[in-house]
Amino acid sequence: MRTWLRVHRAAQVCVALALTAGLVAAAGDVLVPVPRPTLDDLAGVPVALVAPLVASSVLVRGALAGGGSLEAVAVRPVLAYRTGLVALTCALSLVMAVVETVPYGAAAARNLVGFTGLAALAALWRRDAATAAPAAYLVAAMLLGRPGAGSWWDWPVEPSPHPATWVVPAACLGLGLAAPALPRLMPRRHRR
């Protein structure tokens, strides 16, 4: 297991998570101006909502790392290990958000969950570009989103950790983690 953790860059994931937590605690409430066509003035997005993208990328990179062909024929449940690594990291971020009561801590944890979920879904299509999906989604939400308006889709820029803003991120993560296991549970395709 130790080698599996090395191969899947668990140390780097921990460092990225710790750095993100530190950044959120130290400067999470700093607003970065974002141009939005729907508003008169430059609106700001707290750093805490953006920083988890990098931590999520490191996590996804770690989860998808490793000897592809070696793990493709492994006897051990490597898919479960990978799912566990991602789920555990997301859970850890939630715990940190609860323990470390800093502004936007919970929203940052939610974004980590959401970004990771989006990347996991994108990885089904193309692994090496998986993290481009949450990055693009974040940019779109920054441009078009209206924080506080209660819409379901612009959760990356929603500073409030209201339970409704968790629905999409949690669904993305759940689907993204479950989807690779689905082919084993579903009947075979391309039957002739």
């Binding site: 599996w4 000897g67 592809g68 070696l70 024929v73 006897v75 051990r76």
Partner: peptide, 30 residues
Amino acid sequence: RALVGWMPQGIRPLPGLTAREQVGYAGWLK
């Protein structure tokens, strides 16, 4: 999978692992 061993065309070195660690890791995975 425990009964079958497979060597694909491309063997990728796992970053940071020695030859023995990589082979041992393959055994552990099996």
